[in-house]
């Protein structure tokens, strides 16, 4: 089985993310985060998961 992989991280505050294997986008506004997530999801065929602390991740399942 292929491994699930985090391919993008969208956070509202850069202090919430230290680093990681995936590109990180910072967007303080919730509307903007939602929009970025939607675009990236459609572009990359990846699932958006909301960690509910202002951080969204895109995961390739």
């Amino acid at each position: 089985m292929e491994r699930d992989e985090v391919i993008y991280i969208i956070a509202d505050d850069k202090d919430k993310v230290v680093a990681g294997g995936a590109p990180i986008l910072i967007a303080p506004e919730e509307v903007e985060r939602e929009r970025l997530a939607l675009y990236l999801s459609r572009i990359l065929n990846a699932m958006v998961h909301d960690l509910e602390n202002g951080v969204l991740i895109l995961v390739k399942h």
């Binding site: 939602e34 997530a37 939607l38 999801s41 699932m47 958006v48 998961h49 909301d50 969204l56 991740i57």
Partner: peptide
């Protein structure tokens, strides 16, 4: 599952 997008 967890669904992150509001419109979805």
């Amino acid at each position: 599952m967890e669904v992150g997008l509001k419109e979805s």
